Simulated scan of single mutants.
Amino acid sequence: MTGQPPGPLDRWYEKAGVRGGVRRIFHEEEEQGRIFFPEALVPHLSHPEVKALAPERVRELTLRHLYQFLHATTHLETRVVNGAAEPVANGRAGYDFPTALRMDAFKVYCDEGYHALYSLDLADQVAAVSGVPVPDFDYGGFVTALQDAGRRLLPDDPLLAGQLQAVVFETLITSVLNEVPQDPTVVSTVRELMRDHAKDEGRHHRFFSAFFLQLWTRLDRSRRIAAGRALPAMIRAALDWDLGPVHGSLRMAGLGEEAARAVLAECYGTPAGDDRIRTIARSTVRLCTQAGAFDLPGVRDAFAAHGLQEAGQDHDDH
């Protein structure tokens, strides 16, 4: 619109992956000596019980971690993000959003369906070429955790809960996606797909940040308080590890039940995990600060209870 600053999706027809991207094809013979996921992002690979396994078992663990990431993406994009984008796009969200924002929500909807498609496609390709099948695990644990947080904290406001879940996920995922393409030890097809995804998600991050601020102005004080108190639990739910598939993968690698549980406890129950969550959540917490959420009663305490602090307060206890 004339006189308005450009929006994050204004050039969607030219820039979106679904409009002009290429299908990423995995060729194992071109990827010899590379790994399937950055080892630093697979905490259990550093555990002595795992390092003592045969190299082929470790390779399978890394492959299954890639499968978990890709399949969890399909669930989150379609069930969380598109579940929130559709009511906004169709004018069913209960607010008078401008038509331009509704069309942007449809653009997000198209993008996310495509992201789910190519994530599932790559997992299927890698399984076929590598000979390591995708296990029949529940990869929707993140969605369940997010939805449980919404139902628990906003039981009478499911539409708002869904919108907040999408805002949280979409303002967190870009930093995660950006980690993988930077690692030259990872197979190129995985890096390229993550880079493709990150480009779209950078635009989505800006869209959902702007959307959140518009949504916030349309909430009355009581709903703002409820939303502000719910957000930290949603952030934790989106970033806490989904350990069901990890546990299953460790058992498939040959670890006994006791050893598998010990690996999970030692690799995923540490302060380092909390530090990772705080780092990834910074931009989301900053957005809450910008909206004024921390000025509302109980919000700062709710964030602190989940190990999260107001932006700018990382080293300030007052």
Rank of each mutant, 00 (worst) to 15 (best):
R224L: 00
L239V: 05
D200A: 07
A253F: 08
Q214R: 14
M234I: 04
L264W: 11
V263N: 14
G228C: 03
D200T: 02
Q214Y: 14
D240T: 09
D240H: 10
P245W: 03
I235G: 08
R206D: 01
P245G: 09
A253R: 13
R218K: 05
S222A: 14
R195M: 12
A259Q: 14
I225S: 08
F207R: 08
R206Y: 03
E258H: 13
R251I: 00
F208T: 02
A210R: 09
R221D: 09
G228W: 01
F208N: 01
L215H: 05
G254F: 14
I225Y: 09
H197V: 09
I225A: 09
R203I: 03
Q214S: 15
E258G: 15
E201R: 00
A238S: 13
L250S: 04
A265R: 05
S209R: 13
L215T: 04
R229K: 09
G248I: 00
A226W: 12
A227G: 11
L219T: 12
A227H: 12
Q214L: 15
F212A: 01
R261N: 13
M234A: 03
F211E: 00
D240R: 08
S222D: 08
G256A: 01
E201S: 06
G248E: 00
V263T: 09
T217P: 02
R261H: 15
L219I: 01
I235T: 11
A253W: 10
H197T: 03
E201W: 03
H204M: 02
M252D: 10
L213P: 03
P245F: 02
H197D: 00
V246P: 05
A262T: 10
A198Y: 05
A227Y: 12
F212S: 00
A260C: 14
A210H: 09
V263H: 15
D240C: 07
D240G: 10
R218S: 02
A233H: 15
W216R: 06
G248F: 02
S222T: 10
H197N: 01
L250H: 03
L213W: 07
L255H: 04
K199I: 15
R224S: 05
A260R: 14
H197E: 00
